[in-house]
């Protein structure tokens, strides 16, 4: 009797969150799905109507499409590689006894709190600007020609900026995990004559595996939808050299008003995100059970 009452109370308490998130997930997505089979142009509504899969075909035959998917993957993979490897190294360095550890931690974590448009603008103008940026100053100091980052290597530039934003996150989480490693285990391994490398491979790395999985999961979610960094720095260009899928969809929808095509692109983005999410959720689900 009491259980029954508790249970319905529990349902009642959970309802607002579940209903809101359900609506938030289903309604706009249903709209997008519907639009993806429509010709819909608010500026030129004459030919509006049902068009079957032709939006998908159009989006697919757009050369920018393949490039945007490749760029999306390039951003996700490169930033993951940089931040996970860099994060492990940094975490191990910060785990050493050092003077001023608190301040060092604060300095390292700071970029994570910088809002994406600020991060992008600061890197674009103060650091990577081919004429006035710090990189250009350094290049000139060594007598080399400064690199025009956003003209010649736009995707690399975006990747560097995003990696700078996420390296602190990876470092902080891996450091937290590292600090929970039992000191006695480390000592025992040392006493047994395990070298630095074998200690790292057989003790440290397995201990951090869960944290590494979590870092990869969460970063992937955010990295699949990098937006402000591209908008502020390269605006997707030159050409489509730094356009990722979210940015292409945004261009189609709000700049060209090709809603049908944009929606088809949106649905493709959802499918892409789901494929990634499937694998990472499984990994995290397994880890959570431990």
């Amino acid at each position: 009797m009491a259980t029954q009452q508790t249970r319905s109370l529990a349902r009642f308490m959970m309802a607002p969150s579940v209903i809101l998130l359900f609506i938030w997930m289903i309604v706009p997505l249903a709209f997008t799905l519907w639009f993806s089979f429509q010709q819909y142009n608010p500026l030129n509504p004459i030919r509006d109507g049902f068009v079957g899969f032709s939006n998908y075909a159009l989006f697919y035959s757009n050369p920018a499409f393949l490039q945007s998917i490749l760029n999306t993957l390039a951003i996700v993979v490169s930033v993951l590689v940089i931040t996970v490897i860099g994060g492990i190294l940094l975490a191990m360095l910060l785990d050493q006894p050092i003077w001023g550890q608190g301040i060092v931690r604060i300095l390292v974590i700071s970029p994570f709190f910088v809002m994406p448009p600020v991060a992008a603008l600061v890197w674009k103008n103060m650091i990577m600007h081919p004429q006035y940026g710090v990189f250009a100053d350094i290049a000139r100091f060594f007598g080399v020609n400064p690199i025009d980052w956003f003209g010649q290597h736009p995707l690399t530039a975006v990747i560097l900026i995003v990696a700078w934003q996420w390296l602190p996150f990876a470092t902080l989480i891996l450091l937290t995990s590292l600090q929970s490693l039992d000191g006695e285990q480390k000592e025992a391994a040392e006493m047994d004559g395990a070298g630095f490398l074998s200690r790292f491979i057989y003790l440290t790395l397995p201990h951090m595996s869960r944290a590494i999985t979590v870092v990869i999961l969460i970063q992937t979610i955010f990295l699949l939808s990098v937006y402000a960094e591209i908008l502020v720095t390269t605006n997707g260009g030159p050409g489509y050299a730094s356009t990722n899928l979210p940015f292409l969809v945004y261009q189609k929808a709000l700049l060209e008003f090709k809603i049908g095509q944009a929606s088809a692109g949106g649905i493709i983005a959802v499918i892409l995100a789901n494929i990634v999410a499937f694998f990472v959720m499984r990994a995290v689900g397994k880890n959570l059970d431990k």
Binding site: F31, T32, A253, G266, V270, A277
Partner: peptide, 19 residues
């Protein structure tokens, strides 16, 4: 887990309907 999965929906996919 389902709640977490709603977080994975790319924002652009629903940009226009929301707009």
């Amino acid at each position: 887990m389902w709640m977490l999965s709603t977080k994975m929906m790319p924002a652009v996919a629903v940009l226009f309907p929301i707009y």
